[in-house]
């Protein structure tokens, strides 16, 4: 074990057995499980079968189920560029979210004192304004005449006619902004569980604050870091709103392609792309589960 975590061990221990047996658990679980099965799992499964339809059909004439694995090869060949771009943009946004989110989560967990709840509210407060409206205001902040672009131009960081809006930088900025709370909250949750006495113990053993952070805090916050990474990276990789509002046709991501294929009625191709994306996601989630188990997921 690379990080023996006492708090984690306690967490994964099964709660005490209740007098009511397992059937009560199933009864409470059933309605939500049914809903998720009908409206999340069944659609996903039917999408897998759609992705194998003969792409020459249409909604009107119907599709022939031909086990057309070819769809996957076609979309991967045609859209590999957008696929790679999605992974790159989402990766960049995730790293930015960690760099911005970790200090914030740390400050809330250990430094905020009586302001803790207020700061937590501040983290989720942006949710209360529509995210489309907030993303639209980035158009203004990153606009050609705005202060940010002006400053960067006068500092020669941006060329004379350099732009921020409609560039990959704008898209990654938007993605970072939109998904930051999903990084901060899981990070905060796992940081908050850390016993502050462990920090004192580190200091007592003559570890510098940095060493204490590296050897104690960081490993103990790993579950939150990974959960936050999943919750940021995956939705960001599938997003198309930020590209539509802040990017240009050359910054299209896989979400834009799926949306366009769907709008154009190319359902089998759209489904094949969606399934590929979901496959990547399921692999990532399974890797996480192997490392951290399922109890920390939700």
């Amino acid at each position: 074990m690379s990080h023996p975590a006492p708090t984690q061990a306690a967490e994964t221990q099964p709660p005490a057995k209740r007098p009511l047996g397992g059937w009560m658990g199933y009864l409470l679980l059933a309605p939500a499980a049914l809903w998720l099965t009908l409206f999340f799992i069944v659609p996903m499964a039917s999408m897998v079968s759609t992705s194998l339809y003969d792409p020459t059909g249409s909604l009107e004439s119907g599709y022939a189920m031909t086990g057309h694995v070819q769809n996957y090869l076609t979309v991967l060949a045609d859209y590999s560029e957008q696929f790679l771009r999605s992974l790159m943009y989402a990766g960049a946004a995730t790293i930015a979210c960690i760099i911005l989110g970790y200090p914030l989560a740390y400050a809330i967990a250990f430094k905020a004192g009586r302001w803790k709840n207020l700061m937590l509210v501040a983290v989720i407060a942006p949710f209360f304004t529509s995210f489309l409206i907030r993303t639209l205001s980035w158009q203004l902040i990153l606009g050609d005449q705005a202060w940010v672009a002006d400053t960067l131009r006068s500092l020669q960081i941006l060329g004379e006619n350099g732009r921020l809006l409609d560039t990959p930088v704008a898209v990654v900025t938007g993605l970072t902004y939109n998904f930051l709370p999903f990084m901060v909250l899981p990070l905060y949750t796992s940081l908050e569980k850390i016993d502050p006495r462990l920090h004192e113990a580190g200091a007592d053993l003559y570890a510098s604050p940095f060493t204490t952070f590296r050897k104690v805090t960081l490993p103990l916050s790993a579950p939150g870091l990974v959960a936050g990474t999943l919750l940021t990276f995956i939705p960001a990789a599938g997003d198309y709103i930020n590209v539509e509002l802040l990017g240009n046709p050359q910054t299209q991501m896989i979400g834009n392609v799926i949306q366009n294929l769907f709008d154009g009625g190319s359902y089998p191709e759209a489904a094949a792309l969606s399934v590929t994306l979901m496959a990547v996601i399921v692999v990532l989630v399974l890797l996480y589960i192997r490392k951290a188990g399922t109890e920390e997921l939700v």
Binding site: G238, S274, L277
Partner: peptide, 8 residues
């Protein structure tokens, strides 16, 4: 569902 892209 929390981790799936909305478009999918």
């Amino acid at each position: 569902p929390m981790a799936s892209p909305e478009i999918v």
